[in-house]
Simulated scan of single mutants.
Amino acid sequence: MIIYPSLQKGATIGVTAPSSGVPDVLHGIMRQACERMEQRGYKIHCGETVWTQEKAKAAKATKRAAEWMAMMQDEDIDAIIPPWGGQLLIEILEEIEFEKIEPKWVLGYSDTSVLLLAMTLTTGIATAHGTNLIDLRGEEMDATTAMWEQVLATETGGTITQHSSPYYQREWQHENLSPHVFHLTEETKWKTISGEEVHIEGRLLGGCIDMIRHLIGTSFGRVEEFREKHCPQDSFIWYFENCEMLTTDLRRSLVQMKLAGWFNHCAGILFGRSSANQPIDGYIVEDVYQELMDELHVPIVYDIDCGHVPPQLTLINGAFAEVKVKDKKGVIIQHFRP
């Protein structure tokens, strides 16, 4: 059984940094993001870790974990959205008492996805892979990003539909902000390795593959145990996005996941757009995807709206999803099925 939190307008958002905080020079855009959220009707409560950053982390692991735990147990805080990801979130996992947290949404991506996946696998509480708080600082939100509110407001038993974006951002232009932060100029095309239409059903699990691969072999990455306890009749749809890995590193990570049993009961795999995926000796990312499809005999969809090349969908770890791809366009229907 999966537990789904629910978020309403006027909710209090806790902002803490389980990975990286915001350095002094960027405090201005962080305050702007908080102000935008308040203008949209939310209350914002920032922890101390948000405003500090040294040696690739916001603070010591014990402090980051304690602040996150405090917000998860605080009845006055309804959801948590970190400012962004980082590099060393995995340090805090052994400091967290997951059995003592209250069900509430945690939303983010990049390094935050380590916490999201670990939390869902460990507790059965659904988590939300989507926008970071810092990317909500614009006057507006593009239609794809803006769906985070509707998704997180969906009640248990409800259904929410998201469509592939019309356009995506090729590169970041931090000095040339648009009204919704991003510069969406390139036509979005969801692709399938088979070249055919795809229709997949299963429970969603995933995140930034650079980061979540490190859960393999730990007590926080027990995928089969999660399935047996929470959704024994269902297959999985895995979604991944690659932040920094070359094609060979991506391949190694996927093979490790396969050998660890993560792809048992797999119905299909989705890959987000990436500015990484650099080829090695002519070994391109489509080769990686083709080999994976040949080995697992499941559909592979790529260049979806997920990850470091915005905008992105809000994907719920634990939700039962239908994924449909036709003519380079995609639809993801998420059912908040317990």
Rank of each mutant, 00 (worst) to 15 (best):
A65H: 11
H163S: 10
K100Q: 15
S274T: 09
H214L: 14
E99K: 12
H335A: 01
V331L: 12
K55N: 13
A17E: 02
L205A: 10
A153V: 07
E99F: 06
H199E: 13
N317E: 09
L107C: 10
E286C: 07
E241S: 14
T145C: 08
E241D: 12
Q32T: 09
G261S: 03
L152W: 11
L116H: 08
K326G: 05
K191N: 12
D210F: 08
G195C: 02
A61M: 06
G206M: 00
L315V: 00
V198Q: 01
I44L: 09
C243S: 14
A70V: 04
I44M: 14
M141P: 06
T12D: 02
E291G: 04
S274R: 02
A146T: 03
I333G: 06
W148R: 08
W148C: 10
V223D: 06
D24C: 08
Q312E: 14
E149T: 13
H335D: 07
L117G: 00
G330E: 10
E201I: 03
P232K: 08
G195F: 03
E186S: 08
F336L: 14
A126L: 09
R64W: 01
E97V: 06
I209D: 08
A321Q: 01
S194I: 00
R251S: 11
K191Q: 14
P166A: 08
S178N: 14
I90W: 06
L93N: 06
E95W: 07
T154M: 04
H308Y: 08
K55E: 11
T145R: 05
E99W: 09
V255M: 05
P103M: 02
R213A: 10
S275I: 10
Y42C: 09
V325G: 00
I209V: 13
H214E: 13
K258L: 15
E244N: 14
S219A: 15
N264L: 09
N132L: 03
C243F: 12
I92V: 15
Y42D: 12
V106Q: 12
F236V: 07
E175T: 10
W172E: 13
E225I: 04
G206D: 07
A319L: 02
K191I: 10
I200M: 15
P338F: 01
W51G: 05
E196Y: 00
N176P: 01
Q173F: 00
E155S: 12
I193Q: 00
L215Q: 05
H297R: 15
V285I: 12
G307E: 00
V301I: 13
G330T: 01
L121R: 02
W238M: 10
P5V: 05
I200T: 03
M119F: 13
T144D: 07
E295D: 15
L136W: 03
I216H: 03
E94L: 11
E48F: 05
E48C: 03
I125W: 04
L204P: 05
L115I: 07
L184N: 01
A321E: 00
L292H: 04
F263Y: 04
G14K: 04
V15M: 06
L292F: 02
S219W: 08
S20E: 11
I280S: 11
A267L: 02
G86D: 06
